[in-house]
C-alpha cells in the first residue's frame, strides 16, 4: 500500500514537472507554435492520471529487502558509477578487476572466490574482446595522470563536475 502511494506521488510530481517543462519548449517558424508541445503534454497528462490512479488504488506492498541488502545494493550502484567514469582514464583491465570482484562479493560473500572472479573475468574478457573480437581500441589499458583521474571522479560530485 504505502510503496505504491509513494511511487504514485513521485510519478505525479515528475509528470507535473514534465508538463511544466513541455509548456516551455522553444518553437520557431518551421515547427509551428503548438505541434512540438502537443505530444509531450499528452504524455504528461496521461502519466499524471495513471499516477493518481495508482495512489488511490494501490496494490499490496512487495517484499522489500532488509537494511543490509539495501546497503549492499547501494555499494553496488556506487561501484558501477565509479567504474563508469574510471574506464576512460584507467582503461579496461584494472577497473574491471576491482568492480567485478566487488560485485561478485556482493552476490556471494566469499573473499577468495570474489578476487579470483574479478581477476579472471577482467583478463578473460580482455583477451576475448582484444584478440577474438578485435575490439582492442575499446578495452585498451592506459596509464593515467592525476589530473585526468580528478577530472573523471569529479563528474560524480554534484556542482563540481561538468
Amino acid at each position: 500500500m504505502a510503496s505504491d502511494r509513494i511511487f504514485g506521488l513521485v510519478c505525479l510530481i515528475t509528470a507535473v514537472a514534465y508538463i511544466a517543462a513541455a509548456t516551455q519548449i522553444q518553437t520557431n517558424l518551421f515547427s509551428g507554435e503548438f505541434l512540438p508541445k502537443l505530444f509531450p503534454l499528452l504524455i504528461g497528462g496521461v502519466a499524471a492520471l495513471c499516477s493518481l490512479t495508482i495512489m488511490f488504488k494501490p496494490d499490496p506492498d512487495p517484499d522489500w529487502p532488509i537494511g543490509r541488502t539495501w546497503a549492499a545494493m547501494g555499494v553496488a550502484v556506487l561501484v558501477l558509477c565509479i567504474y563508469a567514469v574510471m574506464i576512460t582514464p584507467l582503461g579496461f583491465i584494472l577497473p574491471t578487476a576491482i568492480a567485478a570482484g566487488i560485485l561478485s562479493y556482493q552476490i556471494s560473500p566469499n573473499v577468495k572466490p570474489a578476487i579470483a572472479a574479478g581477476i579472471g573475468l577482467s583478463l578473460g574478457l580482455f583477451v576475448l574482446f582484444k584478440f577474438a573480437l578485435g575490439l582492442g581500441n575499446i578495452v585498451a589499458y592506459k596509464v593515467p595522470t592525476a589530473a585526468k583521474l580528478w577530472d573523471a571522479i569529479s563528474i560524480l560530485i554534484p556542482f563540481v563536475g561538468h
Binding site: A22, I25, P40, V46
Partner: peptide, 20 residues
C-alpha cells in the same frame, strides 16, 4: 508514458531546437 516521455528528449526534428 515513461518510455514515450524519454523518447521526446533531444533535438526536435522540425524546429531544430532542443526539447526537455
Amino acid at each position: 508514458c515513461m518510455g514515450l516521455g524519454i523518447a521526446m528528449i533531444g533535438v526536435d526534428s522540425s524546429s531544430g531546437l532542443p526539447r526537455l
